[in-house]
């Protein structure tokens, strides 16, 4: 198949089986260059196996995959020269220090001893790891390890970066730091393939998303299209005075219909809305009527809701363990 110059990744009918399990079962992907492309799916959906084939670590059983114009089976070295991988397991050496890890990779990527040390210094500083530079990585916190892991992928800035669940298990602050790094990277022109279990994360970072389940792509599009296909999001409102909740409910019902219902929380109300605009109008109606509100939020549909809408079953329903091999 001829490859388009605008595609960072192009796969056709990609298959990988482990024993009787078809971990990846005919995946077609078209990932444009210069943006974050999200691959969204639960554990065991085949995300990691797909990444491992694209990063030349696993041979596909069937189908083709071209990365930056090179076939992953026929020209693995050409692919390796332009990609980096930050895997789900920490892809740094835990028995070395942070600086040592970066310096080793610098040497392996062709820098001289001095250049490698200088590049490691630069990345250590940029990623806020100065105080821990010489400490063994096994003593790093989760967030620091993740940052080092991403820094290790950027010793030579790659054209394409594979990020496999970069924020799983991180606290919110570390997660935001990782997101900032990904945004900075994309602004410099790197394409990122981001595997995640969180719709929220894909929505924040990705310009397109493929949803995969049991080894197949079951939906593809922009985050907006995807959420639209899921349907309505939920508007949560908290009034200040529980006595006035029924009044508020009546006002909201004028714009949003009868489906406005009270929460178990005595000041809470929830209503499905089509979009942010409809939600804003409903809130304005409340304030115009003089009902004081303590807060409101527009809930994203969760991965579970996306899956429920796309597959008719929740994401966590008896999916097999992710095959690590």
């Amino acid at each position: 198949m001829p490859s388009s110059p605008h595609l960072a990744i192009e796969t056709t009918g990609l298959v990988k089986a482990f024993g009787d399990t078809r971990a990846v079962d005919g995946v077609d992907l078209q990932v444009p260059t210069g943006a974050v492309y999200g691959v969204l799916g639960p554990n065991g959906a085949g995300k990691t196996t797909t990444i491992r084939m694209l990063a030349t670590l696993l041979r596909p059983d069937a189908g083709t995959a071209r990365v930056l114009g090179h076939d992953v089976v026929d020209e693995p070295d050409a692919v390796r020269r332009r990609i980096s991988l930050t895997g789900q397991l920490a892809s740094v050496d835990e028995e070395l220090g942070g600086h040592e890890n970066l310096q080793l990779l610098g040497r392996l990527l062709g820098y001289s001893r001095r250049q490698a040390a200088a590049r490691a210094d630069e990345l250590i500083t940029a990623f806020g790891l100065t105080a821990a530079a010489s400490r063994l990585v096994k003593n790093y916190s989760g967030g620091m390890r993740r940052r080092l892991d991403i820094a290790a992928s950027l010793v030579v800035t790659p054209d394409l970066l594979f990020l496999d669940e970069p924020t799983t298990g991180l606290d919110p602050r570390s997660r935001n730091e990782v997101w900032a790094i990904v945004r900075a990277l994309v602004s410099q022109g790197t394409t990122v393939l981001l595997c995640t279990q969180y719709l929220d994360e894909a929505d924040q970072l990705a310009s397109r998303i493929a949803v995969i389940d049991t080894g197949r792509v079951i939906a593809e599009g922009t985050p907006g299209e995807l959420k639209a296909s899921v349907g309505r999001s939920a508007l949560h409102v908290r009034v200040l005075d529980p006595e006035r909740r029924d009044e508020a409910r009546a006002i909201l019902a004028r714009g949003l219909g009868d489906s406005v219902h009270p929460d178990p929380d005595p000041v809470g109300l929830t209503a499905p809305v089509a979009d942010a605009e409809e939600a804003a109008e409903a809130i304005s109606a409340l304030t115009a009527a003089g009902v004081p509100i303590g807060g409101f939020s527009l809930g994203q549909p969760s991965l579970d809701e996306v899956f429920l809408a796309l597959t008719g079953r929740p994401a966590t329903d008896e999916t097999p363990e992710e095959v690590a091999a």
Binding site: R81, G110, A126, F127, G128, T157, E177, I181
Partner: peptide, 22 residues
């Protein structure tokens, strides 16, 4: 020990990078 990555240093570090020979 855990400090926020600095925006400026981050962008500079990402921009630098002539690919060295194999």
């Amino acid at each position: 020990p855990s400090t926020t990555p600095s925006e400026v240093a981050l962008h500079a570090a990402l921009a630098s990078g002539e690919r060295p020979p194999r």
